[in-house]
Design a protein around this nucleic acid. Structure first.
Lengths: 218, 218
DNA sequence: TCACAGTGACTATGCGCTCAGTCACCTTCA
DNA sequence: TGAAGGTGACTGAGCGCATAGTCACTGTGA
C-alpha cells in the first residue's frame, strides 16, 4: 500500500506568526485545554479535521496522546469547541444593536466589525466554515442556530434601512446574504501578512456594502 | 472504543435530485469513470473527502471496491479530477472575452455566467472550494493556476471599466475579489430547490456587482 | 484466444481511544 | 515537622477496527 497520506503537510504546529487564537478561549476552558484548542486550530486549518490525528494536536503542545482525553471526550468534541466558540465570538463581536445611529451607519458598523473579526481570526473562521462536515448532527444544529442569529442581526439592520427609505434593495434577505458573503468568503483567501490590514479591509467592505444597498441620503 | 464515526451521514449516493454532474465530465473519461466521478461528487459533498471511503464511491455505482483502481490510480486522483474539471468548466463558462460591448455590460455578463454556473453546479463547486486540503501539493498548484486565470478575467474587465471612466472603485483588485466572493460564497448555502433559480440569482448578483463598482453612465 | 473490465478476499498500516501506572502536589494528623 | 494517604493530570504502550490499495482470478466480447 502506498503511504496513506504521503502529501500531508507538516503535522505539528509551528510558531503562530499568524494569529493569537489563544485569546479566544474564555475561562470555561482550563489552561491546558486552551493550549490544546489552539494547537487543534492550527492542525485543522493546515490539514483538515479528518486528516489531523489526535497525536498531532497533543504533540503541538508537547503532551502525550492520552492527555487529550483528560480535557475532551472525543476528537469531535475538540472540533465542536473550536467551531462553537468561533461562532459565539463572531456573534458577540457584532455587539449590542439598536443604538441611536442611522441605518446606514449601523450597517457600516456591523460590516466593519464582522469583516475585521473574520480577517483577524481567519484561521479559526476558516475552520468554522470548512469543517462542519466533521461535526455530529446535534452540534451542526447548534452551529446553525448561531448562524441564524448572525443572519438576523444583518437582516434586521438592512430591513430597518429599507423601512426608513435609506436603502434601495430588491430583496432584503438576498441583500443581507450578499453582505455576509463578502465577510465570510475572505476566510478563503485572507492572510494577515498580505497587503490589507483587517481594519482597512473592514472599511473598504463597509463601503461596498453600502453601495450594494443603494444607499441614498435621507 | 466508541464507534469511530458514529455520526456519519448515509454513505451511498442516493437519487441525484440535485445536479446533473454527469454532464461535466468530457470525453477524456470513459463512461464508467464518469459515473464514478459523479458518485464521488455526491460522497465528497456529503461527508468530505477524508470521511469518504473508496467503497462508498464504488458502491454508489454498484461496483466492487477494486473497480475504482481500474480507472483511477488513487482516491486522491479522483478528487483531483473532480476539482480540476470543476475549475476548468467554470473558467470555460466565462467564455471568450473582449467582445465589443461596454465594460459595464461585460462585467454584468461575467457575473451572470459565473453565478449561474456556481448555482447550477453548487455541489461540484463546493468540493472545489472545500476539499483542497485533500490534494497533493502539485495538484493544489495546478488548481491555483486555474483560479489565477479566473481572477484575471474579472480583474481585466474591472480595469477596463475603470480606464473608460465607467467604474469608480478605490482598488481594482479588491473590487474584483469582492465580486468573485459573491459568486463563490453561494456554494456554501445555495440549494437548487430553494427560492432562487440560478438565472434569477445571477441577474440579482450582476446588479449588486455593478453597484459595488459605482457604475455610472459613460 | 486474447485483452481487459471487474471481483472480492486479503494485506499493510494508520489512528481513535483505553487504561494501568507514575509523579508532583496537597491534606491530614501525630 | 514530617510521614502517610490521597488526588488527578499526564504518560505511553497497545488494542481493535477501519480503510487504501493489491492481486490472482473470472467472465465476456471481439
Amino acid at each position: 500500500m502506498a503511504p496513506r497520506q504521503a502529501h500531508r503537510r507538516a503535522r505539528v504546529a509551528g510558531a503562530a506568526i499568524d494569529e493569537p487564537s489563544t485569546e479566544l478561549w474564555g475561562p470555561e476552558f482550563a489552561e491546558v485545554a486552551r493550549r490544546l484548542l489552539s494547537s487543534a486550530v492550527l492542525c485543522f486549518a493546515r490539514n483538515g479535521f479528518h486528516a489531523t490525528t489526535t497525536r498531532d494536536v497533543t504533540a503541538g503542545v508537547g503532551l502525550s496522546p492520552g492527555a487529550l482525553y483528560v480535557h475532551f471526550s472525543t476528537k469531535e468534541d475538540v472540533l465542536f469547541a473550536v467551531v462553537r466558540v468561533g461562532h459565539e465570538r463572531a456573534l458577540a463581536e457584532l455587539g449590542d444593536q439598536g443604538s441611536g445611529e442611522g441605518a446606514a451607519e449601523e450597517v457600516a458598523d456591523l460590516v466593519r466589525r464582522f469583516v475585521a473579526w473574520h480577517a483577524r481570526h481567519h484561521t479559526v473562521a476558516r475552520i468554522c466554515q470548512y469543517e462542519l462536515a466533521g461535526l455530529e448532527p446535534d452540534h451542526v444544529e447548534c452551529v446553525r442556530e448561531l448562524r441564524q442569529q448572525i443572519n438576523q442581526v444583518f437582516r434586521r439592520a438592512v430591513a430597518r434601512g429599507v423601512d426608513a427609505g435609506v436603502f434601495d434593495v430588491a430583496d432584503v434577505d438576498r441583500a443581507a446574504r450578499a453582505i455576509i458573503s463578502l465577510g465570510v468568503d475572505l476566510v478563503r483567501w485572507y492572510r494577515l501578512d498580505g497587503p490589507d490590514s483587517p481594519d482597512a479591509l473592514a472599511a473598504e467592505y463597509a463601503e461596498l456594502a453600502l453601495r450594494m444597498l443603494g444607499t441614498r441620503p435621507v
